[in-house]
Every structure is written in structure tokens, then in C-alpha cells.
Write a protein that binds this DNA or RNA. Structure first.
Length: 561
RNA sequence: UGUCCUGUGGUGUAAUUGGCAACACGUCUGAUUCUGGAUCAGAAGAGUUUAGGUUCGAAACCUAACAGGACAACCA
């Protein structure tokens, strides 16, 4: 009874507009009530977080509606594509946590079939070979306001078209001398309907089909038909393809495809504050050495985020929270940062690391003695075990954690004040020493043995400091990453300047950290929280002799000077 | 001086289809804490671009404005 009540009370979750369309289609039994999507990257660059949104959407929808999602490489332009990109894309999709099983397809798998379809259209009088140059075609296309002019080749005979198109395939003509165009309407207010090019001649080596072809289909011609051949029901793409949809449908219509027609639906791509997302700009950042490659932890690429320390779950979660709609959007990076903090807070081991060391000497602690304390690995996890932490007379604390003349609500150390050393004892600052430059160089404290961690002493203090044992801490390189741009909207620039003028000069600060010995067990890719500081991960640059840590994101700090 | 798309707190997304705007992030309080983290409790913040209209009732429907975006590669 009760359980029934509970299940009938299940929370009604609202659907985004895509889910509404899909649920409607299922109700009307379109495509037999099936849902089949695809993620269709062009292998000409690395995937970024915007693609991650699309991947999560397509695979997520398929999963939600018991359907399938294919991975399809849109490889119709051999001059810009390569296997290197194919491989990185495969890796990234897998890493994000999605599996396309054996359904890894390529638009190039369909070249032969596409060719047959083209012949069908030629025979129908719906496509023709045009011998104008690219410039002439462009000049005759008109503008959005002015209608175009018809090609002089537009009305040649079907048999001529057939034989010339065959000769195009056979390699009888040099690049750029002929194209196959759909015969639609040169006066259409939609530029894409003004006799769009279907095939161009390119004597180029293709990474999959080698030298089998010297004519290659254009996106508009290949995409919808590929969708149809794969049994795609919902072909989801970004807003800029909205104007292409009439052409997508026109090809399907003229091919006389009636059943199981794919439907193109557009959604708004992801934009992130303090970030640029276009492939061109990302390429420029890499090419111009503004960053150290595609997987630089400051890049919004999936490989960059991975190296930065983002987890697949955090990215999937993020994709879920940004939502799906048709209006253009700018997501605040704070949401992304929230997602990774949420994950890492729950799942990463705590570690103490000091980045600006200040020596602290506990004057009443026996010289030469070391004791082993125990620190919880993760206070968020009740099952979590502990790590051994050595403690002795000389330790390092953070320079920022001591002030000679503290302001009002300073909870840390200052002359005469008391704080707790995390996992250890409460100490009191008795005095300090300055060096020749007037900088504080050493602090002298006394500790209270009865306040040892775990002894539940009644003594209370306001602040708790992290620290490391001077004798055996690990010296490691730490790369402090920050936002790549100083401007929320990097593309907003002054006259004559471009987005690169908004680069943050301090997006990477390399420093040294002194870390508790337990960290020696961390391997490349491992994540941890440096207590009171932020989340870090071990960079693959780590060697036997030097560990390298990347800061993924800082901890929230409600003190902020 | 074209066609198409989109306008809801600071930012995103909802409002099950016409019943007086919800959730998340962010912000700000307070409690708590051996991380100024986390957690918990609470607050501020929109009357839905504007103007008309339909209706007992409109964020939703209609009309018109206004604003933003997309489209003129043999790129995808």
C-alpha cells in the first residue's frame, strides 16, 4: 500500500522541448515508437565542453527512451580531417562514459550509396552538373535580399548530366572545374535552397577511403541521407543549422523517402563565461602558443578538462544542469566549478600542502622526536580510513596564516593567539623572528599536549591551520590554474582588438608546494583536496624525482581579504 | 532592406499546455564545524521585452512593435 502510494507520488520532472517532441513522437508511434540518435563530429579538431553537452544529450536521450545512439564521423572533407582526430574523439566520448558499441559509423561508409542517390536525382531532373567557377557560383547566388541568377548549365539534358557526373567520379576533370548542384530555386529567400552544391571535385587522399574517390559530398547532401541510412529518428544539431532544415527535408522528399524519415531538431549550443569555444579560436590559442597544446588544463577541450582534474561525472552533471533550449545562453563558469567541487568534495582524499612556507617551532616539544598522527582521508565518507601524518618540533605553515597585526576577525595565528593544527594540537604563538629584510622568518609556539586530536579536550579555538612536518614533507611543483580570460565575455573587445587581448596573464602560476608524505602514493591522474586550499590532481608530467600537481579549482573562501 | 529562430530574477532552466512564476548556480544572513570547506536554516532578487487584443482568468493564444541571433564556403 505504502509503496504504491510512494511510486504514484513520484516527482513529476519537467521535460525539455526535445523530450516533449520525442514523447509526442512515441505516442504517435512515429518510426515505430523508436528513438535513435547520433553524435556526428567532424574529425578535424578536438572535442570541447560544448561537444560534451551534445554527447550527453544524444546518448542521454537514447538511454532515457530505451533507444540507441551512434557515433558517426562526418568525414566528407578529406583535406581537413585525420585519424589523429578520430582517435581523440573516440577516447573523449568513452572517457565521458558513453558507449556506442559496434555502431561506429562514417559518412564515408555511404559514399557509394550517396552516389546512387545522386544519380536518382539527376534522372529525376533535380540535379545538374554546373561548370561555373566557385567565384561565378558565388556571384550568381545573390544575397539574402537579392535573388540569385540561374546557372547557364541548369537545363542541360539528363543524359549529359549523367555522363559528365560519371566522368567527374572517374577523375576526368581537375579540382574546381565542375560541381553537382541540386536544382531547387535561385530566388528562394533561403540561401541554402539556391541550387546548393552536392558534390565537388577534390583529388585528395581520404583517411579511410584512400584514393577511391575524387568527388566528395557536401555536408547538406551527406548528413540527412546518412541519418536515414542509419535509421536515425531524431537528428539533433545546433541552431545555426536551422536554415538548413528545409534543404534537409527537400532531399528526403525528392528521394521519395516516406517511412522512417529522420527529423532534424536544433538546440542552442553551450557558451561559457570567461571562455571561448569556437574551433577556430581554440586552434589559434594552440597555434599561437598561448597555451601548451590542446590538452592544456586551461583549455575548454575535453582533454584539457580531463588534465585539469575534471571528472566525467562532474561534466555529465554539468551538462544535465545547463538544460536544453533554443535560446542562446551564456552559462556562468561558477556552475561548472560547482559541479567539480561537488564531486571532488565527496570523493577525493584530503591532503595537507603548504605553498608559502613559514617555519614554526614548537618550543616545548622534544627535540629529535617524531610522532605519527592520523588524518581522516575523507570526512565526507564515513567508511574512509586514515593516513599517517608525521609531526615534530619544526613544521611549516602557510605565510598567510600568520599576521603580526591582525585585523578584527582574523581567526588564524598572531602573537598571543591560539589555533589548532589540524589532526594535531592546539598551539599558542609566543614570539616570532624577522630576517634582515624585515620579513617574518620564524614563529615560536608552545603546544598543549592534552589537546591532541581525538582527545576531545575542552579547549576551543576559532581557527584550524594546515601544516606539514619540516623534516619529511615532499617538495613538489604546483601549477595554479585560473581562468584563461579576464573578461566574462572574451569576445567583447575594444575597437581593433581581438579576444586574445582578454587573456589572463596569470592564468598559470607555477610554484612549489611542501606536501605531507602520504601524497607520495598518488599517481598521475589521481585527485585530492589540499585542505583549506583547493582540489588538485597529479599531472602526467610527474617523474620519479618530481611530482607535479595541477590545481583544478580552489576551495570556496568566505573570508577573502 | 529578405527569410527563419529566440526574448521569464544576476546566470541558466521550469511552470505537464490558459488557473495569479518554481528549481539550480550565484549573492547575503544565521547556526554548526578540528578545512573561514562541507552541512543545515533562512533572506533578498523577476510579475515574464513593450503596446494592444481574446478570456472570469495570459508567461503561455492573436496582432503589432522593439531587441538579440542565424543565413550569401566547392567548410561542417
Amino acid at each position: 500500500m505504502n509503496t504504491n502510494e510512494n511510486s504514484s507520488e513520484e516527482k513529476k520532472v519537467s521535460l525539455n522541448f526535445l523530450e516533449q517532441i520525442i514523447e509526442n513522437d512515441i505516442k504517435e508511434n512515429k518510426s515505430g515508437g523508436k528513438v535513435h540518435t547520433r553524435f556526428p563530429p567532424e574529425p578535424n579538431g578536438y572535442l570541447h565542453i560544448g561537444h560534451a553537452k551534445s554527447i550527453c544529450l544524444n546518448f542521454g536521450l537514447a538511454n532515457k527512451y530505451n533507444g540507441l545512439c551512434n557515433l558517426r564521423f562526418d568525414d566528407t572533407n578529406p583535406t581537413t580531417e585525420s585519424v589523429e582526430y578520430v582517435n581523440s574523439i573516440r577516447d573523449d566520448v568513452h572517457w565521458l562514459g558513453f558507449d556506442w558499441e559496434e555502431r561506429e559509423y562514417y559518412a564515408s561508409d555511404y559514399f557509394e550509396k550517396l552516389y546512387e542517390y545522386a544519380i536518382f536525382l539527376i534522372k529525376k531532373g533535380k540535379a545538374y552538373v554546373c561548370e561555373m567557377t566557385a567565384e561565378e557560383i558565388s556571384a550568381n547566388r545573390g544575397t539574402p535580399q537579392i535573388p540569385g541568377k540561374e546557372s547557364p548549365w541548369r537545363n542541360r539534358s539528363v543524359s549529359d548530366n549523367l555522363s559528365i557526373f560519371e566522368r567527374m567520379r572517374n577523375g576526368d576533370f581537375p579540382d574546381g572545374t565542375r560541381v553537382l548542384r541540386a536544382k531547387i530555386d535561385m530566388a528562394s529567400p533561403n540561401m541554402h535552397m539556391r541550387d546548393p552544391v552536392m558534390y565537388r571535385i577534390m583529388h585528395a587522399h581520404h583517411h579511410r577511403t584512400g584514393d577511391d574517390w575524387c568527388i566528395y559530398p557536401m555536408y547538406d547532401w551527406a548528413h540527412g541521407q546518412s541519418d536515414y541510412m542509419e535509421g536515425i529518428t531524431h537528428s539533433i544539431c545546433t541552431l545555426e543549422f536551422e536554415v538548413h532544415r528545409p534543404l534537409y527535408d527537400w532531399f528526403l522528399d525528392e528521394l521519395e523517402i516516406k517511412d522512417n524519415r529522420p527529423r532534424q531538431i536544433e538546440f542552442a549550443r553551450l557558451n561559457l563565461t570567461y571562455t571561448v569555444m569556437s574551433k577556430r579560436k581554440l586552434l589559434e590559442l594552440v597555434g599561437g602558443a598561448y597555451v601548451h597544446g590542446w590538452d592544456d588544463p586551461r583549455m575548454p577541450t575535453i582533454s584539457g578538462l580531463r588534465r585539469r582534474g575534471y571528472t566525467p561525472a562532474s561534466l555529465r552533471n554539468f551538462a544535465e544542469r545547463v538544460g536544453i533550449a533554443k535560446r542562446e545562453n551564456f552559462i556562468e563558469v561558477e556552475l561548472l566549478e560547482h559541479c567539480i567541487r561537488e564531486d571532488l568534495n565527496k570523493n577525493s582524499p584530503r591532503t595537507m600542502a603548504v605553498m608559502n612556507p613559514l617555519k614554526l617551532i614548537i618550543t616545548n616539544y622534544a627535540e629529535g622526536e617524531t610522532e605519527i598522527l592520523h588524518g581522516t582521508l575523507n570526512p565526507e565518507d564515513p567508511e574512509s580510513s586514515t593516513r599517517p601524518i608525521p609531526f615534530s618540533r619544526e613544521i611549516f605553515i602557510e605565510k598567510d596564516d600568520f599576521m603580526e597585526n591582525p585585523p578584527n576577525k582574523f581567526f588564524r595565528l598572531s602573537p598571543g593567539s591560539e589555533v589548532r593544527l589540524k589532526y594535531a594540537y592546539i598551539i599558542r604563538c609566543d614570539s616570532f623572528k624577522k630576517d634582515a629584510n624585515g620579513e617574518i622568518s620564524e614563529i615560536y609556539c608552545t603546544y598543549f599536549p592534552e589537546t591532541k586530536s581525538g582527545m576531545n579536550s575542552l579547549k576551543k579555538v576559532k581557527g584550524t591551520l594546515h601544516w606539514v612536518n619540516a623534516a619529511d614533507c615532499i617538495k613538489a611543483e604546483v601549477r595554479l590554474y585560473d581562468r584563461l580570460f579576464v573578461n566574462e565575455y572574451p569576445d567583447e573587445t575594444e575597437e581593433g582588438k581581438d579576444f586574445k587581448h582578454n587573456l589572463n596573464p596569470d592564468s598559470l602560476v607555477v610554484t612549489t608546494a611542501y606536501i605531507e608524505p602520504h601524497a607520495r602514493s598518488y599517481k598521475a591522474g589521481d585527485k585530492c583536496q589540499f585542505e583549506r586550499t583547493g582540489y588538485f590532481c597529479v599531472d602526467p608530467d610527474t617523474t620519479e624525482s618530481l611530482m607535479v600537481f595541477n590545481r583544478t579549482v580552489s576551495l570556496k573562501d568566505s573570508w577573502k581579504k
